[in-house]
């Protein structure tokens, strides 16, 4: 290799314009490529940037390893199938999206820590404020394991009553909703179907 070309490579290395040498030339010519690599190595060693080990053939090793890898033949997805699935997803998502509501300022209103867990409970279960049915009349349990049958019966009755109250409360709300306003009903009769 002529000195001139070596000089050009050196100039290239220093990010200077080199006469009659382009990066493509450098890539084509194995000898030039080697020179290029060697010059870099020299520079690295002089600057102490090589680390502990110098592995000049690392790139070759990697190239060989890649070549040795088995080829994975991934099946191409059928384009028609992909299209229909996508269309369905859009259809399903859109109506929900129409009414989907961004978390609003309401969420920011802090009203107490205990609410965070309580708002999930639906629907409202009325809390008993007045309980005239006495739990009394039953002697206090003597041993730890002793539980009179009547207490659990009473508990069950209480749960049943709570469920009944809740059902009635929900029914009350539903019945209110079902009230067609007279004005609207009359208007509907005037124009049966649009």
């Amino acid at each position: 290799m002529s000195n001139k070309i070596s000089e050009s490579v050196s100039a290239f290395l220093d990010s200077q314009e080199a006469e009659g040498l382009s990066i493509d030339d450098l890539k084509q010519d194995q000898q030039l490529t080697d020179t290029w690599g060697r010059y870099h190595m020299i520079g690295d060693v002089m600057r102490g940037e090589t680390g502990q080990y110098i592995m000049p053939d690392l790139a070759n090793d990697i190239a060989v390893a890649i070549a040795a890898e088995p080829t994975v033949l991934a099946p191409q997805p059928k384009p028609s199938m992909g299209a229909t699935v996508k269309a369905k997803v859009i259809q399903l998502v859109k109506p929900a999206g129409q009414f989907a509501i961004a978390a609003s300022a309401a969420g920011l209103m802090v009203l107490g820590v205990q609410q965070a867990n309580m708002v999930e409970q639906e629907p409202l279960v009325p809390s008993q404020v007045f309980q005239p049915i006495p739990f009394g009349g039953v002697a206090d349990p003597v041993s730890y394991n002793y539980e009179p049958a009547s207490i659990s019966e009473q508990k069950q009755a209480l749960i049943k009553r709570q469920q009944k109250l809740q059902a009635i409360l929900l029914d009350h709300q539903k019945q209110i909703k079902l009230q067609a306003s007279k004005a609207a009903a009359e208007e509907q009769q005037d124009t049966p179907e649009n």
């Binding site: 409202l124 279960v125 009325p126 809390s127 008993q128 404020v129 007045f130 309980q131 005239p132 049915i133 109250l165 009635i168 409360l169």
Partner: peptide, 13 residues
């Protein structure tokens, strides 16, 4: 049974 009252907010049952 005499009246039993439950209340949630303003809703009385």
């Amino acid at each position: 049974r005499k009246s039993t009252i439950s209340q949630t907010g303003a809703t009385v049952l």
